[in-house]
Write a protein that binds this DNA or RNA. Structure first.
Length: 492
RNA sequence: CGGGAUGUAGCGCAGCCCGGUAGCGCGCUUCGUUCGGGACGAAGAGGCCGCUGGUUCGAGUCCAGUCAUCCCGACCA
């Protein structure tokens, strides 16, 4: 009725906006470029956060929290990093407001309260963190230092999109210090694996692991690794990054340690992050024209039970059975919700929970009770079936695993079908328009060619896949010799 | 920051061209009947018509400015 979504085939962007807004994940706010994450969306993010947090702890990391503000002079210390982020930084220059003498009831920044040093609102925290690490690290015994923080950051984007690119977003940023290059490189790849595992096992989202070209590298990094996912419209989305920072920040912030051999050396660094953008990835990878489809392992509610009443007398009886069923499922660790709100009718609830992406919906009325069954609908395939009430908790537990698995399989199939190879420019550009997706093609390895391709085809090199096989070929644009294929796509 | 569009009830919109009592659908409240795919009836509540200024006897409507949001580009996770 009032919540019908735009069809994906009509306007994919509009479908995405409709889905996010109408499913209750997020809302626009009074602040330009900033969104409100609503309870359903936040619950999803909390589940992601909890899983990732456990994975970080399991790999030896601890959480800490650093300030939102970075003094400008600190921010400037690592030049490339500072330059890279400069044009999207919010800056605090005053510490007080006062009544506007020329405009009653209005406030202006008090010209007498200008900060001695401007504060940058963190677009990322390397500067403040490395300035702190200098005091924490003296000896090789202090290493490795493995810290993560859950925080908000601000990047003043020109154009924003719900979850995918907002001026403020939530994320985690890991910042580690190591005694050797090898240790830091290993950490970079280890965390990339953590992200890939999370994406595939929890989000049911297949990802390509790779390394960015110098053009696409994080400002201040020696190497940027990423996981790239393919959305349903054939555009790629960077879902996570892990950076090998070399000694750049150690040198900028004078972070040295004394080796076993009593020598002063700069430490080696990494940083890695994923953000609320993952929520957007989840939406765009799996959902359909009826709304969200959430993978069971992350869904805030995995099973919703809808009692179907028939006359006022049936309520206690049906409610009791639903409670019993829910209790049995909870003993299996299943997240269940019973919706016995009498103000909405079953049909309305069906549509609503489909919109919200609940993996399994169970409806039960007198007819089912008499037959000892329930009507079970799975969100991913929309199949409905009658399932025996007896031991329903075991059936549901198994089905949740199955749905999770099938969602991944389906997404993987989609990605494989939409990953193609192109050998000529003609082929390449035709593919981009006709069958968007990943395109594996030869590139001569120069930043100029990469730039030119981006300009002409609006496609970028998403990454060079890890363990990429070497293969002699010719660059699709210049025809110059190339040693390997790289992965192109139009991207978010 | 350039191009396009839009701001009227919680949401979606009409009204503006041609100035004269602010409307429709959904939602909301109350009561009743209902309940197996977005129920029905009856009665209600709800508005600085984005903001500021101008023209006018009179502005949602005309003019100027301004702010905000969305879409498309350049920049980015």
């Amino acid at each position: 009725m009032s919540k019908i979504l735009t069809k994906r085939s009509e306007d994919y962007s509009q479908w995405y906006n409709d889905t996010v807004l109408k499913s209750g994940l997020a809302d626009y706010s009074a602040v330009r470029g900033c969104m409100v994450i609503k309870p359903h969306g936040y619950a999803l993010w909390e589940n992601m956060r909890d899983v990732l947090d456990a994975m970080f702890k399991a790999t030896g990391h601890s959480n800490a929290y650093f300030p939102l503000f970075v003094p400008k002079s600190l921010f400037e210390a690592e030049e490339k990093n500072a330059e890279g982020f400069a044009k999207e930084c919010a800056v605090v220059t005053h510490y007080r407001l006062k009544a506007d003498p020329n405009n009653k009831g209005k406030l202006i920044p008090d010209p007498e309260a200008v900060l001695e040093e401007a504060l940058v609102v963190r677009p990322t925290s390397e500067a403040i963190i490395w300035n702190t690490y200098r005091n924490w690290i003296q000896s090789y015994r202090d290493l490795p230092l493995l810290i993560n923080q859950w925080a908000n950051v601000v990047r003043w984007e020109m154009r924003t999109r719900l979850f995918l690119r907002t001026a403020e977003f939530l994320w985690q940023e890991g910042h580690t210090a190591h005694a050797t290059r090898e240790d830091a490189e290993a950490e970079t790849l280890r965390m990339l694996d953590v992200y890939a595992t999370f994406a595939e096992e929890y989000m049911a989202l297949p990802v390509v692991k790779g390394v960015k070209t110098p053009n696409e590298r994080f400002a201040g990094a020696e190497d940027t690794y990423c996981i790239e996912a393919l959305m349903q419209d054939g555009k790629a989305l960077q879902a996570g990054t892990s950076h090998f920072l070399g000694q750049n920040f150690a040198k900028a912030f004078e972070v040295k340690f004394l080796t076993k051999e009593n020598r002063q050396e700069y430490v080696w660094a990494t940083s890695w992050g994923v953000s609320t953008r993952l929520v957007g990835a989840l939406v765009m990878a799996h959902s359909d024209d009826d709304g969200l489809i959430l993978p069971p392992r992350l869904a805030p509610v995995q099973v919703v039970i809808i009692p179907v009443y028939k006359g006022p007398d049936s309520k206690p009886e049906i409610d009791a059975k639903c409670d019993e069923m829910a209790a049995a499922m909870r003993t299996k660790g299943i997240r269940v919700k019973i919706d016995n709100d009498e103000n909405t009718r079953p049909g309305w609830k069906y549509a609503e929970y489909e919109l919200k992406g609940m993996p399994i919906r169970i409806a039960m009325g007198l007819r089912d009770m008499a037959n000892g069954v329930v009507e079970l609908a799975r969100r991913d395939t929309k199949e409905k079936s009658l399932v025996p009430l007896e031991n329903i908790e075991n059936y549901v537990a198994g089905l949740l695993v199955d749905i999770q698995h099938q969602m991944y399989t389906r997404a993987l199939k989609f990605r494989n079908e939409n990953t193609r190879t192109a050998d000529t420019w003609e082929e390449f550009t035709t593919m981009l328009d006709a069958t968007p997706g990943f395109i594996s093609a030869h590139w001569d390895g120069t930043p100029e060619t990469e730039e030119k391709i981006k300009e002409l085809a609006k496609a970028t090199i998403r990454c060079i896949q890890l363990n990429n096989p070497l293969e002699d070929g010719k660059c699709i644009l210049t025809g110059n010799p190339s040693k390997q294929r790289v992965l192109f796509a139009r991207a978010y």
